[in-house]
Design a protein around this nucleic acid. Structure first.
Length: 973
RNA sequence: GGGUGAUUAGCUCAGUGGUAGAGCGCUUCGUUCACAUCGAAGAUGUCGGAGGUUCAAAUCCUUCAUCACCCACCA
């Protein structure tokens, strides 16, 4: 049979993958030798809403390499796949579909809605699995897991333990006091109307406004306001009856609890302890708030005085907690001004009493509705406009935004421009907006997040962070690259409570019930809760858990915990976690904390953190930029092997990966190269034969076996150290540079013209070498190697289960190594020499090189056929030093002298040789300088000194030859 | 503001103390005999700047410059 000239990836990949699956090749423990150590990897579960992007392709390629490598080594291997239910993302997909039908989530009951989500999950949730298969991922799909399996309402085929595990963990942690509910300031997403964690928001700077307002002092009191410049010179001195406040969020003024100034700020020192009036709301009910000191205000920024609105700002929240200032909540969960209909006047009066020293609880304060009637129910931004308009109308605005150039209006005078104050206009103001939960989920809600005082559930992370830190510090768990360990430490050392409740429907509902008095009953089932509560009527907490709470249990949950399963015993703790740096906090740190908290063991021994895949210009791939490379398109175009090899070869630790199609095309060519090497072997009957490693006689065959052994050692070392790019590059240069460029060429005279014994041993050697290439490449390029494996022989096992070799340095024949290096150098030299000459067509002229040593002549004799073929010479007579004047050219029936000047450009050749000589002399000076330095000879390692001496000798010999050649050349001119 | 990393050939990047590398691109040449998704030859570098440690520095230290990312953000 004749092989095609190229590998038909499109045709073969699906067929091969199917064959692997049919053979159960990926099942846990497949190809394991009895008693072998185990190797397990948990896939970072992609969102069910996800489709494969380059990040997944990269991440899963690296995992697949390790898994295939260990499986071939006979380890008891498991690659556990699964998907994450991805709370917000999934709910959003289904809500969007409903919106297309003109419906909303709230048009349905919770049960009805969840049924729709499950239906969607069943229909579309498997997309990414098929995409991972196209990549060649060798997961044990029979064990596919889902972070919501077994949840109430799940269809029958979604049974499983995950929900039970999650609920059980919650209850255990609740009982241990690791989980609590409390009223805290959290990030609120007004679009999805749910709390989100600090990690899920992104700080962005957008142009905005800074308003400066006057807060009048109580009772019309006045003081002398003095402002100095850096040298202490007074730049402004005036009587004032107000304190100036700068704010970007005027709508929160009604919730102010105090005005804070720095204790060092002399301008306001006389005011500390006094009261000032919030200049908004009905005049008869304006509240007076205290002026306090706190370290937080920066005297150099704004006016130096800050309004403290504890319920709507994180910094203010801290100040308020420190100073015991009430936090008045102004907005409801849609980020609209609160609209509960309570009388404003009473609330304002109560708030005033609190401000003046009355005792209060946070619930009391929170229950006050400090929003005046005309602002109630307004969107926060509408309310902002109205507040600004009112304050301005009262003449209490020191600056307005009327001069915003973007509004296209003529500049207007601010109502009361302040001498020496900041120029009115645009300031950069930090806002907060929602960011995608996980790459590549690009559809962020993009709304401005509102800090909101709400009741939420928290994990008291301070109690469980210890072991997670200690494990990495002690080396029990290693994080690579090291800089990511630093990031991990920094975050965990400063960890905040983890808000785990979300006001969504899709997720694990919190297993807590309340009676009418608000008492909590936490239990795994409603019946248990009811048993605790006696005959009280219970209502379940409607919130669900943060998706990361359940994915934090991924290592044990996928292995069947809380049951004591065989899988847990075999595969837990897992071996390696391979993940992107973007989820170190979200996921890696949480898994560490949770696994230690629940089962008291590490979740994994090694964490390998890889970088981001970017476009060829280094930009993040994003839909909006239109620079997304779809891995499936690339697989269609170049084949999965080429895509995988590209990602692997570029996976230098800790650096972003800039992907270009040129690079992929280059590695696609590599698969073709491999294919054709195999094709050559097949044409020459140099294909698989069972048995041991060949023990050939010919130098070249001995040599290639040693080269193969070097490669095997290098590949294993690279993979052991997660140096994926080293493994790929080693194999690339071995297969292309060593096997194809040299060994295959060397083999041709032996296979075609050699004696029978040499031919047979060369066939056997080549067959073995090609097999080794396939084995060693298989983890990176599984498809083309499996295909060739099947083509080149009748095998007992598929390549996916072939035995990984263990041979090493002992296969290296030092003599063969030396001799082949010499042969290669000679051929290079002859080829180079030929390129410098203008050989007249049809003539065969000697090639002008530097002279050969006696040892060289002997080595030449032993490898004559190969050298003659590759260097295209007829014999050593074709290789000589520049002769005097003429070269002798043999023609039919005699010979004649051809002037050297006719076939070489004497001047150019001279220049070239001189340049080479100059380089050589520079090197010689360096080498001699070192050896002449007694301190080098004393302090440098002996092998380095010996190597330097050896080098010097070689260079000196070269120099001699080069000078001789130059001399001859000079004789020509 | 704090942290981390980067700066090496025209481009994209490897290279953690011992003679500066790869891929792509470029120039010239070459298709009967595995592969034109190929082969051969060739050009291209004060390894960001400046100091220091060392027998020896792209590599370690200090410092400066520029860029990137992460965290926290001044109301």
């Amino acid at each position: 049979m004749t092989m095609d000239k190229t590998f038909n990836a499109a045709e073969a990949e699906a067929r091969i993958y199917e064959a692997w699956e049919e053979a159960g090749a990926f099942e846990a423990g497949a190809n394991a030798t009895p008693g072998a150590e185990s190797f397990s990897i948990m896939i970072p579960p992609p969102n069910v809403t996800g489709s494969l992007h380059m990040g997944h392709a990269f991440n899963n390629t690296l995992q697949d390499i390790l898994v295939r490598w260990h499986r071939m080594r006979g380890h008891d291997t498991l690659w556990q796949p699964g998907q994450d239910h991805a709370g917000i993302a999934t709910q959003m997909v289904v809500e969007r579909q409903l919106a297309e039908e003109g419906k909303r989530r709230t048009d349905f009951t919770r049960e009805e809605f969840l049924k729709k989500v499950w239906a969607w999950k069943t229909r579309s949730g498997g997309t990414i699995i098929n995409q991972l298969k196209r990549l060649g991922a060798s997961c044990d799909w029979s064990r596919n897991a889902f972070t919501m399996s077994g949840a109430p309402g799940a269809p029958a085929h979604e049974d499983g333990n995950f929900h039970d595990a999650v609920i059980r963990v919650f209850v255990e942690m609740y009982d241990k006091g690791l989980i609590y509910r409390g009223k805290r300031l959290v990030n609120w997403d007004p679009h999805f109307e749910t709390a989100i964690s600090d990690l899920e928001v992104e700080n962005v700077e957008v142009p905005g406004y800074m308003w400066h307002f006057k807060y009048p002092l109580a009772g019309g009191e006045t003081y002398t306001y003095v402002e100095r410049d850096a040298e202490g010179t007074v730049v402004l001195e005036e009587e004032r009856d107000f304190i100036s406040i700068a704010t970007t969020r005027p709508e929160t003024m009604l919730g102010d609890g105090a005005v804070a100034v720095s204790p060092e700020d002399e301008r306001y020192a006389p005011l500390v302890g006094k009261l000032c009036e919030i200049p908004v709301g009905p005049k008869e009910h304006r509240r007076l708030i205290p002026i306090i000191t706190d370290e937080y205000p920066d005297p150099g920024f704004g006016s130096g005085a800050v309004k403290i609105t504890g319920a709507h700002d994180f910094n203010d929240y801290e100040v308020a907690k420190r100073s015991g200032i009430p936090m008045y909540r102004l907005m409801d969960t849609r980020a609209c001004m609160r609209n509960d209909g309570a009388p404003y006047a009473e609330a304002a009066a109560r708030a005033q009493a609190i401000a003046e020293g009355a005792d209060f609880t946070i619930e009391e304060v929170d229950s006050l509705n400090l929003v005046p009637d005309h602002l109630r129910g307004l969107d926060r931004l509408e309310a902002r406009e109205k507040v600004v308009a009112e304050v301005t109308a009262d003449g209490l605005a020191m600056m307005t935004r009327a001069d915003d150039p973007r509004l296209g209006k003529a500049a207007q005078q601010p109502s009361a421009p302040e001498e020496g104050g900041e120029a009115p206009g645009l300031d950069l103001v930090p806002l907060v907006e929602a960011k995608p939960l996980m790459q590549p989920f690009g559809d962020r809600s993009k709304v401005v997040i509102e800090p909101m005082l709400t009741d939420q559930w928290f994990v008291d992370t301070s109690q469980i962070v210890g072991p997670a830190l200690e494990a990495v510090r002690s080396g029990e768990v290693t994080i690579l690259p090291e800089q990511d360990a630093k990031v991990y430490f920094h975050w965990l050392e400063n960890i905040e409570p983890w808000c785990i409740s979300r006001q969504l429907w899709w997720g694990h509902q919190i297993p807590v019930w309340y009676d009418d008095e608000g008492n909590q009953f936490c239990a795994t089932t409603e019946a248990d809760a009811q048993a605790q509560a006696g005959n009280k009527t219970l209502t379940r907490d409607p919130d669900v858990l943060d998706t990361w709470f359940s994915s934090g249990l991924w290592p044990i949950g996928t292995l069947g915990w809380p049951e004591d399963t065989e899988e847990l015993r075999r595969y837990f703790p897992t071996s390696v976690l391979i993940t992107g740096f973007d989820i170190i906090f979200f996921w890696v740190a949480r898994m560490m904390m949770m696994q230690y908290a629940i089962v008291g063991q590490k979740p994994f021994s090694h964490v390998y953190v890889h970088a981001l895949v970017r476009d060829e210009k280094g930009k993040k791939m994003s839909k909006s930029l239109g620079n997304v490379l779809d891995p499936l398109d690339l697989i269609d175009e170049y084949g999965a092997d080429a895509v995988r090899f590209t990602l692997t070869a570029m996976a230098a630790m800790g650096r972003d990966l800039k992907l270009s199609k040129d690079r992929i095309a280059g590695y696609r060519n590599f698969t073709t190269k491999l294919w054709n090497a195999a094709r050559f072997a097949e044409m020459n009957e140099a294909t698989h034969r069972p048995g041991a490693i060949p023990a050939p006689q010919a130098t070249v065959n001995k040599w290639i076996i040693g080269e193969t052994a070097k490669t095997r050692v290098a590949v294993d070392t690279a993979l052991e150290n997660f140096r994926f790019n080293d493994a790929a590059n080693t194999l690339y240069s071995f297969v292309w540079g060593t096997v194809c460029d040299w060994y295959v060429e060397f083999s041709k005279p032996l296979l075609m013209d050699g004696d029978a014994a040499t031919k047979i041993e060369t066939q056997a050697t080549m067959a073995w070498v090609i097999d080794q290439c396939l084995i060693l490449l298989h983890p990176i390029m599984p498809f083309v190697t499996e295909e060739l494996w099947g083509t080149l022989g009748d095998r007992q096992k598929m390549l996916v289960h072939a035995d990984w070799p263990g041979y090493g340095e002992d296969l290296i024949d030092a003599d063969a190594d030396r001799e082949m290096n010499w042969v290669i150098a000679l051929i290079d030299q002859i080829r180079s020499a030929r390129a410098q000459m203008h050989v007249p067509a049809g003539l065969h002229v000697p090639l002008l090189v530097t002279d050969l040593s006696a040892a060289g002549r002997a080595a030449y004799a032993r490898n004559e056929a190969m050298i003659q073929r590759l260097a295209r010479i007829r014999g050593l007579s074709d290789v000589r030093l520049f002769p005097k004047g003429c070269v002798t050219v043999a023609v039919e029936g005699g010979s004649f002298g051809l002037p050297l000047a006719d076939i070489i450009d004497v001047d150019a050749e001279k220049a070239r040789l001189e340049k080479t000589l100059a380089k050589l002399e520079k090197e010689l000076r360096g080498l001699r300088g070192r050896l002449d330095n007694p301190r080098f000879v004393e302090s440098a390692p002996a092998d380095v000194v010996a190597e330097t001496r050896e080098n010097l000798a070689l260079r000196e010999e070269e120099e001699t030859k080069l000078r001789a050649a130059l001399q001859r050349l000079a004789g020509l001119a």
